[in-house]
């Protein structure tokens, strides 16, 4: 009996030691990869900036919502835009995480999809189509009716896939509304 427990204990301890070592080695690179991922998305949605927006953040708490982080872009010290991550809860097969960059004038500077589970080839056209996301640039709360055309708005949908564009459009509008209140 003692031998059984001892043998198992030894195996567990050796395993734990190996893992602790691996964790030590990989911790840095994993953190770096995650940071680079955020930075890459931030760079793609924010206007040209000279600071590191992932380090220049502000946490806000919109009414009736969860805490969220605002990433601030500055150029030579002057604020040029804000980015935030909003979640569209009404995608075709689950949540869609969208990063929205908004410039000083309250217009969209860029939009990136961070995570989604939409149907490949249909719903994910919002990412694979090279025109859809860029077409949102320059739109503001005032110059655009934020709904897909099928619902009487200004934003294009895709044939056979309305739900995903509708969900993303709603999320981007929410980001603009939050920004109007908290940015600047």
């Amino acid at each position: 009996m003692t031998r059984l427990v001892l043998a198992l204990m030894v195996v567990c301890v050796i395993g734990a030691v190996i893992l602790a070592g691996t964790d030590r080695i990989t911790q840095g690179p994993i953190a770096e990869q995650k940071r680079r991922e955020i930075v890459r998305s931030l760079d793609s949605v924010l206007p040209p900036h000279s600071n590191a927006p992932d380090q220049d953040t502000r946490v806000i708490r919109p009414e009736g919502g969860k805490e969220m982080t605002l990433y601030l872009a500055r150029r030579d010290g002057a604020w040029v835009g804000t980015a935030m991550v909003v979640t569209a809860p009404d995608g075709y097969s689950g949540n869609i995480d969208v990063m929205v960059g908004i410039d000083r004038a309250g217009a969209i500077a860029g939009v990136a999809i961070l995570a989604h589970a939409e149907t490949p080839g249909l719903g994910d056209k919002i990412i694979t189509d090279p025109r859809w996301l860029p077409a949102l640039r320059g739109r503001t709360l005032d110059n655009t009716h934020w709904a897909v055309k099928k619902d009487g708005g200004d934003v294009d949908q895709f044939t056979g896939a309305t739900i995903t564009p509708r969900a993303v459009t709603g999320a981007v509008r929410r980001a603009l509304e939050i920004c109007r209140e908290y940015c600047g």
Partner: peptide
Amino acid sequence: LTMNAFAH
């Protein structure tokens, strides 16, 4: 862990 670090 290795894949997470080097093949993210």
